[in-house]
Amino acid sequence: MALTLDLIRADVADALGEDPADIPVDENLLDYGLDSVRIMALLGRWRRDHDVRADFADLAERPSVESWSALLGVVS
């Protein structure tokens, strides 16, 4: 399965124990409880499953689903 905006959103929701519908795509995920440990876990999963080449600093600078989607080259 390819990495998509919806999959990023679902993975973030899973990491936070939330429903994907409750995770906005354009807001700062730190405000929803995402922390550095969870970002590293998500990045590790995406590297393993989707050959993502981004690093932690890239994701931490712009912590939103929409920003990550663009950064990771996801096509809507």
Rank of each mutant, 00 (worst) to 15 (best):
G17R: 13
G17P: 07
E18H: 14
E18V: 03
E18N: 14
E18W: 04
P20E: 04
D22H: 05
I23E: 02
V25G: 13
E27G: 08
N28V: 04
N28D: 15
D31P: 02
D31Q: 06
D31G: 13
D31I: 00
Y32P: 02
Y32G: 02
G33R: 04
G33F: 15
G33H: 11
L34G: 02
L34K: 00
D35T: 01
V37E: 04
R38I: 00
R38F: 01
I39Y: 00
M40I: 14
M40A: 13
A41V: 10
L42W: 07
L42N: 06
L43K: 07
L43A: 07
G44C: 12
R45N: 13
R45P: 08
W46T: 03
W46C: 05
W46I: 03
R48A: 14
R48M: 13
H50G: 07
D51W: 00
D51P: 06
V52C: 09
V52K: 02
R53E: 08
A54M: 08
F56A: 09
D58S: 09
D58T: 00
L59A: 09
L59C: 12
A60T: 12
A60S: 12
A60N: 10
P63Y: 08
V65P: 04
V65T: 06
V65F: 15
V65I: 14
E66G: 08
S67T: 04
W68F: 07
W68R: 05
